[in-house]
Simulated scan of single mutants.
Amino acid sequence: MELRDIEVFLTLAEELHFGRTGERLHVTQARVSQSIKKLERRFGAALFHRTSRIVQLTEFGQLLRADLVPGYRQIQDAVAGALARGHGLAGLLRVGFSGAWCGLLMAEAAEAFQAEHPDCPVELREVPLHDRFGALRAGQRDLQLTELPGDGPDITSGPVLFSHRRALVVPAGHRFASHESVSLEDLAGEQLIHLAGPPQYFLDHHFPSYTPSGQPIARGPSAMVWEDAMTLVIAGRGLFPASIEAATHHARPGLEFVPFRDAPPVEYGLFWLANGETPKVRAFLKLVLDISSAVDS
């Protein structure tokens, strides 16, 4: 008894239509009929009642179907698993993100990815602000969606998925709190809270020491994580530049998010190791881009 004949029988038992069965299996209607007749000759019993209008399983056919389905599904699962492993689409995929909006996108992609590749579970972890590429370089992450810029020949950067207006987080009583917007020049004489840990190029991009005209911006205390930075802002220890999207996800009493009118946006892009573009990384990247494109459209 050939596996293809079993597949024809089980498909016809679902469709109860020779034409649709042939379309699903990409064979002719005559090939479907030949397979069924072959099985019926072998078993010495009819599998289907056939008329010009209906196709129905016989009692014998119903019993055969009930016996075959569990084993056939086990074979399908085994073949699918072998294909996944053979094509590098099995095993844990470790994904990092920075920012709640990035986490939501990656969680949606992870759910869709696991549905498509059940042998490849996805682990989601937030990327710490003070060490954005440490886990990636240590082999503890396969890819991540985090703030630009990124550096190093060992890191590959993909497309930008989020581009948000930059804002200044200030305490509620600050003179900027009632402004509709602020300028980079307004930072002259102010004190910026900065992050401890990131390389200088990242700090220069997000926490400038001078205004565009060359006026100094005082360096305030440092923070390791977002919550510590917000606590320092509320305490009046300094101001903190961030994405305006943070106002949606991290608003709380004592804080105001004032947009900049002349600062570059805060951008978030995909990153992975230059030598780490495995089949499952490529598959996940494609899925993230597809989901992001669908949302944008």
Rank of each mutant, 00 (worst) to 15 (best):
H17I: 08
F18Y: 12
G19W: 01
R20K: 13
T21P: 08
L25Q: 04
V27S: 07
T28R: 03
Q29M: 13
Q29E: 11
A30S: 15
R31N: 04
R31P: 00
V32M: 00
V32W: 00
Q34G: 07
Q34P: 05
I36Y: 00
K38N: 12
L39W: 03
E40A: 10
R42C: 06
R42D: 14
A45I: 04
H49V: 15
H49M: 09
T51S: 15
T51Q: 04
Q56C: 05
Q56S: 09
T58F: 01
E59R: 09
Q62S: 12
A66F: 00
V69Y: 10
Y72I: 08
R73T: 07
R73V: 04
Q74I: 10
Q74G: 10
D77I: 01
A78P: 07
A82R: 14
L83Q: 06
H87W: 06
H87P: 00
H87K: 05
H87N: 09
G88R: 11
L89G: 02
L92S: 05
V95A: 13
G99F: 00
G99S: 02
G99C: 01
W101P: 06
W101M: 12
L104W: 14
E108A: 15
E108V: 06
A109H: 08
A109C: 07
A110G: 05
F113A: 02
Q114I: 13
A115L: 11
A115N: 05
E116H: 06
E116L: 13
D119A: 13
C120Q: 08
C120P: 04
P121A: 15
V122T: 13
E123M: 14
E123A: 15
E123P: 10
L124T: 04
P128C: 04
H130Q: 12
R132N: 09
F133N: 15
A135E: 11
A138L: 08
Q140R: 14
D142Y: 10
L143K: 00
E147R: 02
L148Q: 12
L148A: 09
D154C: 05
T156A: 13
T156G: 04
